[in-house]
Write a protein that binds this DNA or RNA. Structure first.
Lengths: 191, 191
DNA sequence: TGTACATCAGTGAACGCGCGTTCACTGATGTAC
DNA sequence: TGTACATCAGTGAACGCGCGTTCACTGATGTAC
């Protein structure tokens, strides 16, 4: 079969989208070649027409996940009319909605501990993505100077990441919502 | 060979200690039967004389990890002379020392996201360990009534867990210490 | 216009490897008589 | 006291399975002449 010239790029993008969802939902080793290709509607053999290795898929799908969540949170912040942007980010990040959709959410509460265990080369690349994510969020953070905003980025995101992780370990919505709303109120009253 | 009657219990405990370190350092799948038995100085075949399955090893080694960190933090809190116990816990938990020794540290910043992905039966058991951990920490938390202490447990531990995870993603001590100390100061000035 | 060949995304069998698990065996020590 | 047998933690080969990766092949379409 011959395909239109844009076909290959589209398929690659579809594989990446499926992988970036799978990696968040099932962990760093959860985006297996066969499973991802099945998601995409292809067989595993064709994978290497699109990627050099599974590692390339992994880093590219993480890159996509970081970009996706940064886009969403930036949109939320920019859409905040009557309140400070960081407050809108905190409310969105600590919502039950975000908590329940791990596959579309921030890679940090889904994968942070696993990301510290990958080999050095990949850890360097992941660190680069984290820095970009931080740089996109810093302008929305509370504080006067950039240094203060940066400090607050780390404090606020640390708190949100931990809260989402704990909430996800709890067995029912009520307990989850309790942790999320406690942490939300704590952060919103802290700056 | 015949062994003294306490021998078997000692070997089982050694296997559990090795596994509980490995699982924190290398992830939920990192405590492989062969690797853990090699740590213990035995060969993989003997494993099933001590455990019914790898799942039994996993839950028992997590249980041990939760108990180990709860013991440590309780000792730190009880040893706090001139300050409130929770402040001593925050200082210990957010120290570079604890951050760097993931294999002896709290299972939450090491494993929380992975723990939400295990099968339902094991998730139930892990949730039980989390509840026990919380119950041991709650008495040390700031707040008047138990309800308030419990709320603060979740807020404080969420924040600490996230901060340790982020710190562990950073490439050098300076950056790690910045996140840890920012978060430490934030928490210590919040209650 | 027709024919032969090139292209290339996708297929599916096969590979080597590491994993959890099983099992026949070992061998030092205890017990029965 | 000596002999035959039982016990049982530990050994290491072997298994089935899923994984990432390779590769000969397919077949629709483009290109050369």
């Amino acid at each position: 079969m011959r395909y239109p010239p844009e076909h290959k790029a589209e398929v690659r993008q579809k594989i990446l989208n499926d992988a970036s969802r799978r990696v968040r939902a099932e962990g760093l080793t959860g985006a297996g070649v066969a499973a991802v290709m099945r998601d995409t509607g292809l067989t595993h053999g064709g994978f290497y027409k699109h990627f050099e290795s599974k590692d390339e898929l992994l880093i590219e799908s993480l890159r996509g996940a970081f970009r996706e969540i940064a886009d969403k949170l930036a949109a939320v912040a920019e859409g905040a009319r009557s309140e400070e942007p960081w407050r809108a980010i905190v409310k969105a990040y600590l919502s039950l909605e975000y908590c329940h959709h791990i596959e579309q959410g921030c890679p940090l509460p889904a994968l942070a501990p696993e990301m510290t265990r990958v080999d050095k080369a990949m850890r360097g690349q992941i660190f680069g993505e984290l820095v970009q994510y931080k740089n996109r969020m810093v302008p929305f953070m509370p504080g006067r100077r950039t240094q203060e905003k940066e400090r607050n980025f780390f404090v606020i995101f640390s708190t949100m990441i931990g809260a989402v992780e704990i909430a996800r370990m709890l067995p029912d919505r009520t307990a989850q919502e309790k942790v999320l709303s406690s942490t939300r109120e704590f952060l919103l009253s802290s700056f």
